[in-house]
């Protein structure tokens, strides 16, 4: 769709005849990747965007292991296989939350006017930063596993199992980020978005099997925990990292992610269009 060489003197009405009626899916992907490139440039310049995915896995892994290890699993060593996938899910989810808040901040800036006035897919300004955030989830996954290994975690799934678990965490992060992207597009201010996101994130993480076995929970709570997509993601990461097996939980986790994207991606794009 390059029109650079067109002489404007011969354009105007004539130009209207050489335009494209809509964005092709291939163009939408290219535009999303360009927006992702922009997001990585921003990340490089604002180091604090990496705090949540560096400090949190290190701090929380140590903290949770020593505080809950004895009470829940008898000792720290046997709690690690249960907890590390949980920490990973929690860290990724916190990182997703930042996606929504940053999107809100970004949308309040003048540059978003230009994005909106360009002939690009409406999804690109939303999906771009989310693709770039895969980098942050990757860092979080690596650090969590490294911290676990340092503390004595020996994943039975081996290198491949751990990598598969990390990749699943990244996929889950990207999918769940759409929830927060939607909150980001409908929210009025970055603070408001932060507040709402916290209210979504805490139940999702703590009302899951991330830190405690489901059997210890009262029946009504267990019922919610079992349908929480985060629980499926955590179980799937456990299966992959601890035993190296591709279980039904992996399928459930991917299905849950797909459902979340199918609901919240269109909602986000629709909200983004409406705001204009």
């Amino acid at each position: 769709m390059t029109t650079l060489l067109t002489d404007p003197a011969t354009t105007g009405a004539h130009r209207a005849d050489t335009t494209h009626p809509s964005v092709s899916p291939a163009d939408a992907v290219r535009q999303t990747m360009t927006m992702a490139w922009r997001a990585t440039l921003k990340m490089r310049r604002n180091g604090e965007q990496f705090f949540d995915v560096t400090i949190q896995p290190i701090l929380f892994t140590a903290m949770f292991a020593f505080i809950f290890g004895g009470a829940i699993a008898g000792d720290v060593g046997s709690y690690l296989p249960l907890m590390i996938p949980g920490i990973l899910a929690q860290t990724t989810l916190t990182a997703c939350m930042a996606t929504g808040v940053q999107l809100r901040e970004d949308m309040d800036k003048g540059v978003f006017d230009r994005f909106k006035s360009l002939p690009i897919a409406r999804i690109a300004p939303l999906a771009g930063p989310m693709v770039a955030d895969l980098l942050r989830y990757g860092i979080a996954a690596t650090l969590t596993f490294l911290m676990g290994l340092l503390m004595g975690y020996r994943p039975g799934g081996g290198v491949l199992g751990v990598i598969a678990g990390a990749v699943l965490a990244m996929i889950a992060g990207w999918s769940l980020a759409w929830v927060f992207a939607w909150v980001g597009t409908i929210g009025r201010s970055a603070q408001g978005v932060q507040g709402i996101s916290m209210m979504i994130m805490f139940p999702l993480t703590f009302l899951s099997n991330a830190f405690v076995p489901v059997e210890t929970l009262p029946g009504w709570l267990a019922a919610f925990v079992q349908v929480n997509p985060v629980s499926h993601v955590v179980s799937a990461i456990r299966d992959l990292a601890n035993t190296g097996t591709l279980t039904a939980e992996v399928g459930w986790a991917l299905a849950a992610c797909a459902i979340v994207v199918a609901i919240f991606a269109p909602l986000s794009v629709a909200a983004f269009r409406r705001r204009m």
Binding site: R45, K109, V111, R114, S117
Partner: peptide
């Protein structure tokens, strides 16, 4: 979408990316 291919917009507040 077609209109967006025919226009250029320079806003009252600079619509460029401050971080870049």
């Amino acid at each position: 979408h077609v209109v967006r291919q025919l226009i250029g917009l320079t806003g009252q507040y600079a619509s460029v990316d401050e971080n870049l």
